[in-house]
C-alpha cells in the first residue's frame, strides 16, 4: 500500500476549451492534513470536483488509494465515494431531517445495521464534535458553526479514509473557526484519516495543517510545510500570507489605460 493516498501528476482540466488547471502536481500522504490555497477562481474547487470524480481530467494522472479516478465508471466512483467524506462550505445538511437523521443518513443508506447500533454510532460521532445534546434539533435551529460541526460528524459517519473540506472556515466567528480547525486536526489524527482543506484562512491553516499548496491560475505556485511557507520569499506567497492588495495577483482587473477610458486626448 502506497504511503500516498492522493497522487496528482500533470493534471490538466478545461471547461469547454477554457483551461482551468494547467499541469497540477500534488500529493497527500496518509494521515496528513493538506491545505490548498489560492485566490478566488484559481481552480481549487475544480480540483476538489476532480478528486471526487464529479468531473474528469482532460489529461494527467489523478489517483486516490491507487485507483485512477478519471477511469472509474459510475459504480466504481460510488464505491470510492463510500470511503470519502466531504464537508461543504455551508454544511449542505438535509433540511428536512433532524441532526440525528443527517448523521445517520449514510449508515441507513449503505449498511444493514440495526437501528440501536445506528443510534450508538450517531451519538458517538455527534459527541466527537460536541453536539450530542443537539441531536433532536433541525438544521434551521443551528448556528453556522454548529451546522458545520454536524456536517463534519456526517462526513465521518462511515469512517472514511479521506475527507475533503471546501472552505470550512468561511463565515465563522473566531471561536467557531478555532473549534472547526481543532476538530479537523483531531479527527484526522484519532481516526487515521487524510484531510484536504481548501481554504483562504491562512493563519488558521498554517496553525493546523501538515503541508500547504498554493495554486494560482491553474498551476501550483508554491508548496511546503507551514514553516517553509512562512519563511518563503516567493512574491505570490508573500502577498497571500500578508494579505497585500497588489502584487503578483493584481488589484486591477486587466483594462485599457484609465485616461483612454475617460477619453482624455493627452493620454
Amino acid at each position: 500500500m502506497s504511503d500516498n493516498l492522493v497522487e496528482i501528476k500533470g493534471l490538466h482540466f478545461a471547461y469547454n476549451s477554457r483551461p482551468v488547471l494547467k499541469g497540477i502536481d500534488l500529493t497527500a500522504r496518509r494521515g496528513q492534513v493538506v491545505a490548498i490555497m489560492g485566490n478566488s477562481g484559481c481552480g481549487k474547487t475544480t480540483l476538489f470536483r476532480l478528486i471526487s470524480g464529479t468531473v474528469r481530467p482532460t489529461s494527467g494522472l489523478l489517483s486516490v488509494d491507487g485507483l485512477d479516478v478519471g477511469a472509474l465508471d459510475q459504480r466504481g466512483l460510488y464505491q470510492l465515494r463510500r470511503r470519502m467524506g466531504m464537508l461543504f462550505q455551508f454544511g449542505a445538511l438535509f433540511t428536512d431531517m433532524s441532526v440525528f437523521d443527517n448523521v445517520a443518513f449514510q449508515l441507513r443508506e449503505h449498511t444493514d445495521l440495526p437501528e440501536e447500533m445506528i443510534r450508538d454510532l450517531v451519538l458517538a460521532k455527534l459527541n466527537a464534535v460536541g453536539l450530542r445534546g443537539a441531536h433532536d434539533l433541525m438544521p434551521s435551529e443551528l448556528s453556522g458553526g454548529m451546522a458545520r460541526r454536524v456536517a463534519l460528524a456526517r462526513a465521518v459517519a462511515l469512517d472514511p479514509m479521506l475527507i475533503l473540506y471546501d472552505e470550512p472556515f468561511a463565515g465563522l466567528d473566531p471561536i467557531s473557526l478555532g473549534v472547526i480547525g481543532n476538530l479537523i486536526r483531531r479527527l484526522t489524527d484519532t481516526l487515521g484519516l487524510t484531510s484536504i482543506v481548501v481554504t483562504h484562512d491562512i493563519q488558521e491553516s498554517l496553525r493546523m495543517v501538515d503541508y500547504v499548496y498554493f495554486i494560482s491560475e491553474g498551476m501550483v505556485e508554491a508548496h511546503g510545510t507551514p514553516a517553509e511557507i512562512k519563511a518563503s520569499g516567493l512574491p505570490f506567497v508573500h502577498q497571500f500570507v500578508h494579505g497585500e492588495e497588489d502584487g503578483p495577483v493584481p488589484f486591477h482587473y486587466p483594462a485599457d489605460p484609465y485616461a483612454a477610458d475617460l477619453g482624455l486626448s493627452y493620454a
Binding site: Q79, R81, R82, F88, Q89, F94, T95, Q106, E109, H110
Partner: peptide, 21 residues
C-alpha cells in the same frame, strides 16, 4: 433549493443516487 444549497451534491458525494433517493 436542495440543489442550490448543495444537498443534491452532498448526496452524490455520499454515493447515494439522488434520482433514486
Amino acid at each position: 433549493l436542495m440543489k442550490a444549497t448543495e444537498q443534491i451534491a452532498a448526496m452524490e458525494m455520499m454515493a447515494v443516487d439522488p434520482i433514486a433517493r
